[in-house]
Computed example of a mutant assay.
Amino acid sequence: MRILAFSDLHRDRETAAQIVAASANADVLVGAGDFAMRGLGLADTLDVLSDVAAPLVVVSGNHDNSAELSAACEAAPMLHYLDGDTVSFGGVTFYGIGREIPFQKDAPWSESRSEDAARMMLRSCPEDAILVSHAPPYGVLDHQADGRCGGSQALRELLGERPPRLHLCGHIHHCAGQKSQLGATRIFNLGPSLTWIEF
């Protein structure tokens, strides 16, 4: 399977158009959240991305309005919004969980989820799925510019207990474009670029 993945477009229509142009060469696309900016402008990127040539799996970021994102995906046949559920293509299962985990940004537009809520939701993540989240796991590809960790303990625990096949995330811009591995799981902090992953 050939996956084209990205995150944190933040209303960048030019990169969205590049993704659409490249989508003919992908089996599946993954967008790991933050299509909007501070709760505004979701349509700037979603209207472009609705023309992808392969299925696009998306989760919401903390800058997105999750209800608006879900509705936009319902109206676009190639877009598949995940939040605590799965979708499968070519025998490969994708599981998605969106928003910032845990709460960090005290702003009215920022959507977050507690670690406990994430733990409850992640119970339904199948083994060997491709895990798509906006937040990275704690201590892996989550270091802010000042050295603080901004990832999720719940995601880190899942990687230790029921390792997914891949973990695709974003959110922490300082680590965008980097990859790592925890146990058997390859982890990608995607960022607003075109990341190709084959397996």
Rank of each mutant, 00 (worst) to 15 (best):
R2E: 15
A5D: 05
F6T: 03
S7R: 00
L9Y: 01
R11L: 11
E14H: 14
T15Y: 08
A17W: 04
I19H: 04
A22K: 07
S23C: 10
N25G: 10
N25R: 15
V28L: 12
V28F: 10
L29Y: 02
L29P: 05
V30N: 02
G31A: 10
G31P: 08
G33D: 00
G33A: 09
G33R: 02
A36T: 05
M37R: 15
G39S: 14
L40M: 13
A43Q: 13
T45M: 11
L46Q: 03
V48R: 00
V48S: 01
D51R: 15
D51G: 13
V52N: 07
V52A: 09
A53H: 13
P55Y: 05
P55D: 09
L56W: 01
V57Y: 03
V59M: 09
S60N: 14
H63M: 06
D64W: 04
D64I: 05
D64G: 07
S66W: 14
S66A: 15
L69Y: 08
S70E: 15
C73M: 06
E74A: 14
A75R: 15
A76Y: 06
P77D: 10
M78C: 11
M78S: 15
H80A: 04
L82Y: 09
T86Y: 10
T86I: 13
V87L: 14
S88P: 11
T93M: 10
T93C: 13
F94P: 08
Y95H: 13
G96L: 01
I97F: 12
I97P: 05
G98M: 04
I101D: 02
P102E: 03
P102Q: 06
F103W: 06
Q104C: 06
A107R: 06
W109F: 15
S110E: 02
S110P: 05
E111A: 00
E115F: 12
A118N: 14
L122P: 12
C125N: 09
C125E: 07
C125F: 08
E127G: 12
E127L: 11
E127A: 15
L131P: 01
V132N: 05
V132F: 08
S133Q: 07
P136Y: 07
P137L: 09
Y138H: 11
Y138N: 07
V140K: 03
L141E: 02
D142I: 04
H143I: 14
G150V: 00
Q153D: 11
A154G: 11
A154T: 06
L155S: 02
R156D: 04
R156G: 06
E157K: 10
L159W: 09
E161Q: 13
R162D: 07
P163L: 06
P164F: 01
P164E: 05
L166S: 00
C169M: 08
H171E: 03
H173Y: 06
H174L: 05
A176I: 03
T185S: 09
T185E: 07
T185V: 11
N189F: 06
N189K: 03
N189V: 07
P192S: 07
L194D: 04
T195M: 10
W196G: 11
I197Q: 12
I197F: 12
